[in-house]
Structure formats: structure tokens, C-alpha cells
């Protein structure tokens, strides 16, 4: 499954999606950025409520396939800009982090 397909099946809001063809593999949940950087795997869908521009930097370094902002959180303007510059997919959902992770887990089976 790629990011575009994920966005479709989970009805995600597409804030910034410069790389829709990026393949998705597994997921990671976390708001502590260093923790995410140490544990998330290449290609993971990263679920978080953090919305500052450091999220784009972490996504770039950890090579996650996309960031999904949960709980209705929206990216701030600086994050949008940095995500555009660095080709980071930023999506969103109104689902709680718990529910979003549960749906994602089903999809990854």
C-alpha cells in the first residue's frame, strides 16, 4: 500500500502530500521526537499530535513514509512550509491516536 491509498482508505485529510507513491510499511506512535527517531522504522506511518516544524525534520531523518496528525491536530504554518521543502507527507485524522493506530494495524495485516 502507498500513502495515497492509505489516505483514501482511512479518509485522511491531505495537508501536504508531495510523495503519494511512497510505500507504507507498519506504523509508529509517539510524540517524543527523539524516541520516535530512535524507534520508528523506514517506511512507517508515524502517528503523532506534535505539529511543530521539528516533526518534518524527524520524519526526514527517520524516513517514515508519512506523518498522520491525530485527534484533529493541524500542522502549523512553519511545519507546512518545511514539509513542502523536504517532501514530507503530512496527513491528518479526527480519530484518536488509539483508534487511528487500531485501524492502521488492521490495514497492515
Amino acid at each position: 500500500m502507498n500513502v495515497r491509498e492509505l489516505a483514501h482508505v482511512m479518509a485522511l485529510t491531505e495537508f501536504i502530500m508531495p510523495e503519494p507513491e511512497r510505500e507504507v510499511s507498519g506504523g509508529y506512535v509517539g510524540d517524543l521526537l527523539s524516541w520516535v527517531m530512535g524507534r520508528a522504522q523506514n517506511g512507517n506511518v508515524w502517528l503523532t499530535i506534535m505539529s511543530n516544524q521539528n516533526v518534518a525534520a524527524v520524519a526526514l531523518m527517520a524516513e517514515v513514509s508519512c506523518v498522520v496528525l491525530t485527534e484533529g491536530v493541524k500542522p502549523d504554518e512553519a511545519l507546512r512550509q518545511r514539509a513542502e521543502q523536504q517532501n514530507i507527507n503530512i496527513l491528518g485524522t479526527k480519530l484518536s491516536t488509539f483508534d487511528a493506530a487500531a485501524v492502521l494495524k488492521q490495514l497492515m495485516r
Partner: peptide, 16 residues
């Protein structure tokens, strides 16, 4: 507040 300061920086550097 920005999501840093979890005490994972140096351990991550060591691991990577």
C-alpha cells in the same frame, strides 16, 4: 514542549 529532552539523544547516536 517541542518534543525533545526525552533523554534519548545520546543513546540514539550511540545506537546508530
Amino acid at each position: 514542549d517541542l518534543g525533545f529532552g526525552a533523554g534519548m539523544g545520546l543513546p540514539n547516536m550511540k545506537r546508530c
